[in-house]
């Protein structure tokens, strides 16, 4: 898979936007709190450039990994910086200042990650008219770079490029930034772009 067009990126942005809207609605309803989720421009980048795209590798983060299965194959990772994860947990559970993640905190982060990924994959499945399902999530707390290179290595045998989606949560006047990283194998990426091209021309 080589370059993708500006039009393709627009469509991928639209998918991410719809996914974010749906995730925000679901989370707001579940947690009975006003949550807005905003997507910045989706970037299509070489696997090796992902660390610089998300701003560094040494920071400790909580990562939720899942595999994409069904009509498309790939890997995905949602990264919450440590302090972001604490802030998010304290805002969502209303439990004041949090400096370590207990089981509740971990399940909050897992739940937010799950909602985000399911909403995104549903938006993608609707747009592409494909069946896409996520695997069960795996969670890890460690250096960002360590998690990234595990995922990137697993998938880079099948693909050289990744989609990096910057996601911002707005809750009670706080803005919390995170990233959703999607690496489809080259065949799946080709298929996705093929369908997008058919639908947008």
């Amino acid at each position: 898979m080589k370059e993708i067009s500006a039009m393709n990126l627009n469509a991928l942005n639209d998918i991410a936007y719809i996914g974010a809207e749906n995730a925000a609605t679901t989370l707001s309803n579940t947690l009975n709190k006003k949550i807005t989720i905003v997507i910045d421009n989706v970037k299509y980048t070489k696997v090796e450039s992902v660390p610089e795209q998300i701003g560094g590798t040494k920071e400790i983060a909580i990562g939720t990994y899942f595999r994409i299965k069904g009509s498309l194959a790939g890997d995905s990772l949602i990264l919450f910086r440590e302090e972001t994860a604490y802030k998010l947990t304290s805002l969502l559970t209303g439990s004041g200042n949090i400096t370590a993640l207990d089981d509740t905190g971990e399940s909050v982060i897992k739940e937010v990650g799950n909602t985000l990924k399911i909403s995104y994959l549903n938006a993608m499945a609707d747009f592409l008219e494909l069946n896409i399902v996520p695997s069960t999530p795996h969670i890890c707390k460690d250096m960002t770079g360590g998690m990234l290179n595990q995922i990137l290595a697993m998938q880079s045998q099948h693909s050289d490029n990744a989609l990096v989606i910057p996601v911002s949560f707005y809750i009670e006047n706080e803005k919390l930034k995170t990233h959703l990283i999607i690496i489809l194998d080259s065949e799946s990426m080709k298929k996705t772009i093929g369908i997008i091209n058919k639908k947008t021309c």
Binding site: G145, G146, N149, Q150, A153
Partner: peptide
């Protein structure tokens, strides 16, 4: 000094 930051499976 040469450094690799955040090695996972690498």
């Amino acid at each position: 000094t040469l450094s690799c930051i955040g090695l996972g499976s690498c």
